[in-house]
């Protein structure tokens, strides 16, 4: 089974934590949107975990683009954010699930297994 997860997160500590939490998966991390987009030319992940605020872009926009692109539309996306308006995002956004930061490690694991 494909257990590759792409994580778009510019904070190195959080990326490392996530890698440790999801020890049953292969985690590939990207610090910028451009790196993330380039990653699709190599492999196709089973799930994407996206932070919202990146130095060169916005995770919600990336999610929308992925959903609109036929080659990536099938890939489940979870958006993580420290933003307080997560409810608004849930209402209007296109992601499959939303996770508020700081998150609980079991919660993260659960949501991912739900979608893969």
């Amino acid at each position: 089974m494909n257990n590759l997860i792409y994580v778009l997160e510019d904070n190195a500590e959080i990326l490392e934590i996530i890698t440790m939490i999801l020890e049953d998966f292969r985690i590939e991390g990207f610090g910028t949107v451009s790196e993330f987009s380039a990653g699709f030319s190599k492999h196709s992940p089973a799930l994407c975990l996206l932070d919202v605020m990146l130095p060169d872009g916005n995770g919600l926009e990336i999610c929308q683009q992925m959903k609109e692109n036929p080659t990536t539309a099938h890939i489940p996306v979870i958006v993580m954010t420290a933003n307080s308006s997560i409810d608004k995002m849930r209402e209007k956004g296109t992601a499959d699930d939303y996770l508020a930061k700081p998150f609980d490690i079991d919660d993260l694991t659960q949501r991912i297994t739900n979608l893969i």
Binding site: E13, I14, I17, A82, P102, F103
Partner: peptide, 10 residues
């Protein structure tokens, strides 16, 4: 919230 996330995760 960012460093707190890392701290909590740790």
């Amino acid at each position: 919230k960012t460093p707190v996330t890392a701290l909590k995760g740790s």
